[in-house]
Structures are given as C-alpha cells and as structure tokens.
C-alpha cells in the first residue's frame, strides 16, 4: 500500500516528463544550436547567436508587439462582456440551462473551423460583415490587409470562442457569493448597479485574476487564428506581417523557413515572457491580499 500513491501519480509524471519537461530542456539546448529542417542530423553549436539574431530582427519585435496588441484587444473586451453576460445568466431565467449551453456553443467550434468561417465573413468582396456595415454607412473595410482591421478581425475570433466559457466561470463564482452581502447592501440603500459594483465585482476578484492569467497564457501562444486567417501565406501573418504573432513567427521560422534552432529560441522567449508575467501576477496578488 505504501508505494501505491507513487504508482498512481506515476503515469502523469512520466508523460509530463517525457513529452513536456525533457522537450522543454531540449528546446533550450537546440536554441543554442544551428538546427535546420533540411539536415536534422547535423547540429552545430551556435552559442547565443539565435537569440542575438532575434533581438536584432524587426520581425521578432513586430511579432512581440502584435502578440501584445492582439492579446489586449481580445482579452479585455472578452472578459468584460463575460462578466456582463454572467450577471444576466445569474437572473432567474426561463430555460436557464438552454441559455448557458447556447452561450457555450462557440467553444465547441475548433479554432480552425471558426477561423475559416470568420475569414469568409470578413472577406472584402461580398463578405457578410462589410455588407452589414454598409447599412450604417461605413465603406467596405479591407480586413485582411489593413493593420488594425486584421488585428481586430483575429481578436474577434478569440472573443467569439471564449466569451461564453468565461461567462460560465464568472457565473459559478457569482452563485457562490453569500446572499446576506447583498441583503446588507440593500439595507444600506445600494441600488442594483451599486450592488454589482461594490459587492459582485470585489467578490469576483480572485476569479477575475484567474481568468486574466488563463487568458494571458492563451494570448501569448495565439497561433491558429492568425495562421488560418492569412490563408495560403498564413504563416507570415499578412503581407506586412501585420498580424504575425510570436506563435506564428515560431512556426514560420521553424517549419516554413526551416530554422528549428531559431524556432527554439522563439519558444524560449515566449516562456520567459510568461514567467515574467507570472512574477508580476504573484506580486499583484500579494498586494491585493494585503490590502484586503
């Protein structure tokens, strides 16, 4: 019986070790080598060349900037809409389960399927969105070529797929808020909006932090949406690389251009960025706890 706990957790740690931890270290090793897709067997030491190469590359900084911008315009509106939606779902509703399932259906759609559909909806000629915009007097927008247009389009796919999911997470947290908090707020004369601001939002704070972290991790590795939005030359992220994210840049360098050493360096840069975010988040959470 003594050994069994370790036997039970062994499968997870073996799989994690073999397919995540060891590869993670190997990726670091390869990032210090010159590894080409065309000749996988010859790997020569390159020192920090791949990283120097990245830091002096406009495309890397561009991808970093795009990842940040798209991450921001996809996460912030998404989470705000999700809180609002959760608030509505928290009312006594007829068919409350049906509403929840409906809001979650975009989550059933894969990145690939959703992006194929949205790409057609956003097409310049005969696209649904430009057609709808013309009713309010807006000229057709070239969603694929324009800078902000393409970044907005890519973000909207993320927002569409994840808003309902996050709303359910907020809804679960809202239902766990003790009713007497609202009662005493009501006694103090707080109206519904004030109750939402001064009871619901503060009570949701840990959940909001959790969703921000998860969304940030997701945004840092954003890949499929911009790839397929770009169509045939998707790995470039548009003719001017206007929506090439870090994830896409890595794929382009590694498997289209064939420089796996550089791709490894990009992967580790992503990891470092995430660790920096994690540390900031940790400090932020500590301050939050102290202030409470």
């Amino acid at each position: 019986m003594k050994a069994s706990p370790y036997a039970f957790i062994a499968p997870f740690f073996i799989i994690f070790g073999a397919f995540s931890l060891v590869p993670l270290l190997y990726t670091a090793w390869y990032s210090l080598h010159n590894v080409q897709l065309s000749s996988l067997d010859t790997q020569t030491w390159a020192g920090l060349d791949n990283y120097k190469n990245l830091l002096s590359s406009d495309f890397f900084w561009n991808a970093l900037k795009n990842t940040f911008t798209i991450g921001l315009i996809s996460t912030v509106p998404q989470l705000m809409a999700a809180i609002g939606l959760a608030h509505l779902l928290n009312y006594r509703l007829r068919g409350s389960t049906v509403w929840r399932v409906v809001m979650l259906t975009p989550y059933a759609t894969s990145v690939a399927a959703a992006t194929l559909v949205f790409t057609l909806l956003y097409s310049w000629d005969g696209g649904m969105i430009n057609w709808l915009l013309h009713f309010v007097g807006i000229d057709p927008i070239n969603w694929r070529e324009s800078d902000w247009g393409s970044q907005f389009a890519v973000s909207s796919i993320v927002i569409w797929r994840w808003t309902g999911y996050n709303a359910l997470i907020y809804l679960a947290a809202m239902q766990a808020i003790p009713t007497d908090l609202y009662e005493s707020a009501a006694i103090d004369g707080a109206n519904r909006w004030e109750q939402f601001r001064h009871v619901t939002i503060p009570q949701l704070r840990p959940t909001i932090l959790f969703t921000v972290v998860v969304s940030t991790i997701g945004a840092t590795q954003l890949f499929g949406e911009p790839l397929l939005f770009g169509g045939v030359s998707g790995s470039k992220g548009g003719s001017e690389h206007q929506y090439q994210t870090l994830g896409l840049y890595m794929y382009d360098q590694g498997w289209i251009i064939g420089n796996l050493g550089k791709a490894s360096a990009i992967a580790w840069s992503m990891f470092l960025i995430l660790m920096i975010i994690a540390v900031i988040n940790l400090l932020f959470t500590r301050r939050l706890r102290k202030s409470q």
Binding site: H87, L88, L93, M174, R192
Partner: peptide, 27 residues
Amino acid sequence: GAGKQLHAGPVTYIVLGIFALVSLAPL
C-alpha cells in the same frame, strides 16, 4: 435586491437574445 434571485425582465431577455444570436449566427 440581490442580483441572483431577481426574476429576469424583458431587457435581460433581449440582451441575452443578442448574445445568443452572436453565438449561433456564425454556425
């Protein structure tokens, strides 16, 4: 006054309807 126990009014249903439309229309 507690949000979780309020019955939804027509406005709630309209806004939820818009969310539902946006969720389902692309499919």
